[in-house]
Structure formats: structure tokens, C-alpha cells
């Protein structure tokens, strides 16, 4: 492993231990309740970036994958009462398959058709769930939390640590893709797909793989939602606001580096939490929309791009 690789894993270990320590020390439940949402967006944004940022295929349907994750968990709880870990793994498997399927259907076409298809999947799945009585239909379904596992003292704290772990896994996967030949192939696709194919890149296979991995991570992020809220309804689980956030965060943070989506999610996610609590949840969507448009127009390289620019200037002087 390279020096950078060691540093990454040491950093990841520190983050995870910090999360565990915080869960043991901090008493106020609310912090974990809010932090869970922010970390969940780290997973979603990182997952979106694998296909959207590296390969340039814009997924508008993050909410479809997220909602599928949540409802797979609901089904498994109702049918078999499976534990959280298995719910997440099953959700990831289904999300990956869904990503592969959507990709197979539309990734041969121009980018915009893929984007529209992902919106279509969202609405179709939402409609299907609305019409499915077993998982509660349009009114949603109440979930009873099982007793919390040792050593955690509350369920929210456990879910928080679980989501931190998921975020570390997601970032590690994204980072591995980015720094390996796979990432180079995806970037070649984004820059010029025909040239990529003519330099030996199996473009369709790589896109399908990226779409499946990205979908699996998004669904995994959605799986704990059932336990987190003790309640799931289609209108919120499949809400397009997840899609716009999952897309805005990497673009605001910067799509070319794995740190971009993490930064974007931490910043924008925190702002969203504050705005939702202090003003209104509508305004927080407006904040996302406006920031997205501002960055896409004025700072297409995102925060990471701005940082490197500043760094280069300092070095130059």
C-alpha cells in the first residue's frame, strides 16, 4: 500500500473511533439524530459521484435507490424479522441489481436519456409501493424497533455509528475506483466516449459496473431509514429532494476527487439541518437548488477545485 493509502485508512479508523467515543460520551440524542442524516448524505453523495462525477452520467433517481433500500428493509422486517446488518446487505444487493438493470436499458443511449430514465424509475417504484398494501401503501408503515444491542445505549446512536461505518466503506470504494485503472477508464468515458472505446476501454461494462456499485451504496444508505424513523411512507422515502441533494453535494464539493462529495455533504447537509430546524424544510430545498445552480455556473470544479486554485496561487507567489 502507498503512504497515501495508509494515511487514508488511519484517518478512517480515527473517524470511526471518534464516532464510537462520541456515542459513549455525548448524552443529547438530538445530535445523533441530526448527524445521522448528514452522514447518510455522505454515502448518497459519494455513491452518486461514482457514476455522475467520474463517468459523467447524471443520475436524477438517487431517491429511487434510496427508497428501494428503505422498503427492502421494511419487507425483511415484516417477513422475516431480519437484523439490521442483513437488511443493509440485502438492500445493497437489490440496489445493485436495479442499477445494473437501469444501466442495461439506457446506458447505451446519450446521457440525458439515462437521466430521464432514472426519474422514471423513481416515480414508477413510488407508484408501485403506493399500491402495495403489504408495506402500508400510500399511508406508510409503522416499524417497531427491536431492543438496542450492547454496547449502545440507544438505537439512534447505534444507527449513527452504523451509518458512519457505511460512509467509510462508501468513501473507500469510491477512492479505490478513483485511483485505479477503473477510475481512469470512467474519466476517459466522461471526456470522450468514442475515443475511450477506441483506446480499448470497454465503456458499456465500466458504466454498468459504476451504475451497479453506485446503486448498491445508495440502497444501503436507505436501508436503516425504517429503523431510524420507526416509520416509512412512499412520499418521503422516494422524494426527489434526495435526488437533488445527492447530485448537488458532489457538484458543490467537487466531482473529480473523493473528498468533494464528502465535503459537499458535510457542509450542505449541516446547513440543511440548521435551516430545516430554524426556518422550514421548503427553504432548505431552495438552498440546495440555488447553491447547485451557482456552483454549476460559477465554480464547476466545486470547493475542491477552488482550494487547489488557491493553493496553486499561494505556491506561485
Amino acid at each position: 500500500m502507498t503512504a497515501r493509502g495508509y494515511r487514508f485508512w488511519i484517518g478512517a479508523a480515527i473517524v470511526l473511533s471518534a464516532a464510537c467515543v462520541a456515542a459513549a460520551v455525548v448524552k443529547n440524542e438530538y445530535y445523533f439524530y441530526a448527524a445521522y442524516v448528514v452522514i447518510q448524505f455522505v454515502v448518497l453523495a459519494t455513491a452518486w459521484n461514482i457514476l455522475g462525477g467520474y463517468a459523467g452520467y447524471v443520475n436524477f433517481g438517487s431517491s429511487a435507490f434510496f427508497g428501494v433500500g428503505a422498503y427492502i428493509a421494511v419487507m425483511l422486517i415484516k417477513w422475516l424479522n431480519l437484523p439490521l446488518g442483513l437488511q443493509i446487505i440485502a438492500a445493497a444487493a437489490v440496489g445493485g441489481t436495479l442499477g445494473f438493470g437501469v444501466g442495461l436499458l439506457t446506458l447505451r443511449l446519450r446521457g440525458i436519456f439515462f437521466s430521464i430514465a432514472t426519474v422514471a424509475i423513481t416515480i414508477i417504484l413510488e407508484t408501485a409501493v403506493i399500491n402495495w398494501r403489504f408495506v402500508g401503501g400510500a399511508t406508510g408503515i409503522q416499524i417497531l424497533r427491536p431492543p438496542v444491542m450492547e454496547p449502545f445505549e440507544s438505537y439512534t446512536k447505534m444507527l449513527f455509528v452504523c451509518m458512519v461505518l457505511l460512509a467509510i466503506i462508501a468513501v473507500a470504494i469510491a477512492r479505490h475506483i478513483e485511483t485505479s485503472w477503473i477510475g481512469r477508464g470512467l474519466r476517459a468515458i466522461r471526456d470522450n466516449e468514442e475515443a475511450a472505446e477506441c483506446t480499448g476501454v470497454p465503456t458499456l461494462k465500466l458504466k454498468l459496473a459504476a451504475c451497479a456499485i453506485s446503486g448498491a451504496l445508495m440502497s444501503a444508505a436507505g436501508a436503516p431509514l425504517a429503523m431510524y424513523q420507526s416509520f416509512v411512507e412512499p412520499a418521503s422515502a422516494f422524494n426527489l429532494t434526495y435526488s437533488v441533494s445527492a447530485l448537488a453535494m458532489p457538484i458543490i464539493g467537487g466531482t473529480s476527487h473523493w473528498l468533494g462529495p464528502v465535503l459537499g455533504a458535510l457542509l450542505l447537509g449541516s446547513v440543511q439541518q440548521i435551516v430545516t430546524v430554524t426556518v422550514s424544510s421548503e427553504l432548505n430545498v431552495l438552498v440546495v437548488g440555488v447553491l447547485l445552480v451557482v456552483f454549476v455556473v460559477a465554480a464547476p470544479q466545486g470547493l475542491v477545485g477552488l482550494f487547489t486554485k488557491v493553493k496553486d496561487k499561494v505556491k506561485g507567489n
Partner: peptide, 20 residues
């Protein structure tokens, strides 16, 4: 070059700005 990705993201942002 990057117009596709950014243009799509731009219009998607506009959707939510109008809605909200």
C-alpha cells in the same frame, strides 16, 4: 466538453428553485 453533465444539473436545480 462537460456541457452535458453541467447543463443537466443546472436545469435540475432550476426545477427545484421554481417549485420552492
Amino acid at each position: 466538453s462537460d456541457a452535458g453533465l453541467r447543463g443537466l444539473a443546472f436545469f435540475f436545480g432550476v426545477v427545484f428553485i421554481i417549485e420552492v
